[in-house]
Design a protein around this nucleic acid. Sequence first.
DNA 1: GTTTTTTCCTAGGAAGACTAGGATAGGCAT
DNA 2: ATGCCTATCCTAGTCTTCCTAGGAAAAAAC
Lengths: 197, 197
Amino acid sequence: MMRAGLTAERVTLAAAELADEVGLDHLTMSAVARRLGVKDASLYAHVRGLEDLRGRIALLGADEKTIRIAEATAGRAGKDALVAYADAWRAYAHDHPGRYTATQIPMEIDPELLARAPGPRRAIELTYSMLRAYALTEPDLTDAVRLMRSTLHGFVSLEAAGGFAHARPAQESWLRCLDALHSLLEHWPAPDEGDPR
Amino acid sequence: MMRAGLTAERVTLAAAELADEVGLDHLTMSAVARRLGVKDASLYAHVRGLEDLRGRIALLGADEKTIRIAEATAGRAGKDALVAYADAWRAYAHDHPGRYTATQIPMEIDPELLARAPGPRRAIELTYSMLRAYALTEPDLTDAVRLMRSTLHGFVSLEAAGGFAHARPAQESWLRCLDALHSLLEHWPAPDEGDPR
DNA sequence: GTTTTTTCCTAGGAAGACTAGGATAGGCAT
DNA sequence: ATGCCTATCCTAGTCTTCCTAGGAAAAAAC
């Protein structure tokens, strides 16, 4: 009897593919096992359980997304970099909806595993270094980073949920939103004390 | 033997409460039945199944959220209205995380049920009428509405997922993001054709 | 008071998460 | 090559959950 040659990584990858196909919440241990040609009990030698598996998918997604963004923005600056960054983000979410969804679920991920994954940390660093091109200083820089991540994630998330009625193509709104973000970062407003009237 | 007096609405409400407590993805038919003091099979007289129940929770959440926003923004204008709108949005997500999560999941909701629910439609209308206070014309108005919804949803969603490391309080970033949104709406940029260098 | 409708139950099947314990494939040393 | 050892994979079984079918009885209609 041949062995399947399972590892935690291979199991995670198969699970990620499956999650992309059927949606993260339809991901089951049994289905992953079937895809790998293995009985479901065999998976537990490599992965603690379904919760753990979803955490691993989230980490994989974060790593992959970060790499894509890093490649896309390499050598670019200013609005070029911003658009490349945002497009890479959105493209990853489109290409890997299951993995992307996994990254946005509040989970207790194995701390040791999380410490080993460079993705989440590096993603933040990338954003900071890109936004440093604009004339922002702390704490505005942090707020701008959060605004940008919020907007990108929110857009992609609403788009995936069918939140944009088909009146106007999402792609056009997307481009205009990036225009707006760029303009906003160039003219970041001072804190607004009290009623301006 | 007394009857429990179930209706689709009561089942949905119990399910929504449970989803808020344990998280939407830990919502089970059995648990809802237990909370109502009823066997799980009894629920199927009022609700098609778990999927349908989640759809109903989503619709309930959309309705409630819309009402809260409408109340908060009533009689306000300009930045006042914007802040009230955004705060109400965020507060609802905090108060009812399960229902809020339900609204952002791509689902096939019973079309007849959806047609009966005023929430989703009215939410969009509210946003449009608020943003009409700024000097925006179509298609910029639609893009601005989408940007605003994206940013609010993204912020709330990332916050719930623990996406903001505790370096800076989320509340402060939130206020500054609203400043930024307001400023952006007042100075919505023209489309950026080609490379600006 | 009888009939009808609705509500809720019991019973049970199918699928999935997970555990315990056994068999064996492959690597390793001798 | 042979024997050992570890990790891998399986069988068997438990428990939970979703959901259906059909029956009993409570409430409603008449």
